[in-house]
Simulated assay, not measured.
Amino acid sequence: MNALEVGNIVNLSVARKTDLGYVLMNAQREEVFLHKTETEEDLVENSKVKVFLYHDHEGRLAATTTMPFIDMNSIAWLEVAGVQTRLGVFLNIGIKKDILLSKDDLPDDRSIWPQVGDKLYCGLRTDKKGRLFADRASNEETETIAKPAPETLRNQYIVGHVYRFNEQGAMLFTDDHYIAFLHRDEADRALRLGQRLQIRVTFVREDGRLNVSLKAPKEIAYEEDSQLILSYLEKNDGFMPFNDKSNPNEIKREFGLSKAAFKRAMGKLMKEKKVEQSTEGSKLKA
């Protein structure tokens, strides 16, 4: 039998039963406690039981018959169960106690830390004191499980999690095991590590990786922006003090659009003869 080390799955013998649970023992006569709330079985002395070893909330070595999603020799996508900026984030590994991913293993910028419900690709490790921690998979470990994407994915929508950032944007790992790159210019919101996103494939590279976007295709974006302007005009008696010469900051504040997007939408509306401009602003055409 293996030594009683935190993070391992081992088969142990039931040495004796107590009011609170069971004392388990290995071949070296090392003991660990299995609380009755950590098993659904009614164990008898000298029977064998398979358990996972962890530290309880008081830092004591403990056992559970609930098998975790990972052990010391595996990696899995783990959901964030809690965030403490002083410590890091806590991950659900499938047992009653969540495991800490230290802030030292997270970005210095806390605005891009994962939130509850996000997922990170992690394994387990122990520190010098023998305490159990989650351990983020390296980029190489993540990319090892990836597969090349087919050309037919272009313009399709897929789903994935952000697993790292670089100077140009974010890398995602999709549900179908594809690697995708989201350039910062193709993001329509602030991103965070572990965030789950629905993304549109814009290009399939020769190496099978994907370029993706969070933005709608241009024709859809133009239509949405033009409808936004029309609704604004209708709510304001058919007139607005804005035209394609207006201050970009004022346009952004009022419509949430860049000046370029505003001009494209206005151009579409004028081409369709729905809006006309003047030096005073713009109005609906009768």
Rank of each mutant, 00 (worst) to 15 (best):
65 T>W: 10
73 N>A: 13
56 D>C: 13
70 I>E: 00
55 H>N: 12
60 R>N: 15
66 T>N: 09
76 A>F: 04
80 V>R: 08
54 Y>V: 03
62 A>D: 05
58 E>V: 11
57 H>T: 11
69 F>D: 11
72 M>Y: 12
75 I>G: 07
73 N>D: 11
74 S>I: 01
60 R>H: 13
51 V>M: 00
55 H>E: 15
53 L>N: 05
56 D>Q: 12
58 E>A: 13
77 W>G: 03
66 T>E: 05
73 N>K: 15
65 T>E: 08
60 R>E: 14
72 M>L: 15
70 I>K: 09
54 Y>A: 02
63 A>K: 14
53 L>H: 01
70 I>P: 03
64 T>L: 10
52 F>I: 00
53 L>G: 02
80 V>M: 06
67 M>D: 06
64 T>V: 05
76 A>T: 03
61 L>P: 07
53 L>K: 05
56 D>L: 13
65 T>Y: 11
61 L>F: 02
79 E>C: 01
64 T>R: 13
70 I>V: 15
57 H>D: 00
56 D>S: 12
56 D>W: 11
80 V>D: 07
71 D>W: 15
79 E>I: 01
73 N>M: 11
79 E>N: 04
64 T>E: 01
81 A>P: 02
63 A>H: 09
71 D>H: 15
75 I>K: 15
66 T>D: 03
56 D>T: 07
81 A>M: 06
76 A>H: 11
79 E>F: 03
60 R>S: 13
74 S>L: 06
75 I>W: 10
67 M>F: 11
82 G>V: 00
74 S>T: 01
52 F>M: 03
55 H>K: 10
68 P>T: 10
57 H>W: 00
82 G>I: 00
70 I>W: 01
82 G>Q: 05
79 E>A: 04
64 T>Q: 11
65 T>G: 06
82 G>F: 02
71 D>T: 14
77 W>L: 04
54 Y>D: 01
60 R>D: 13
81 A>T: 01
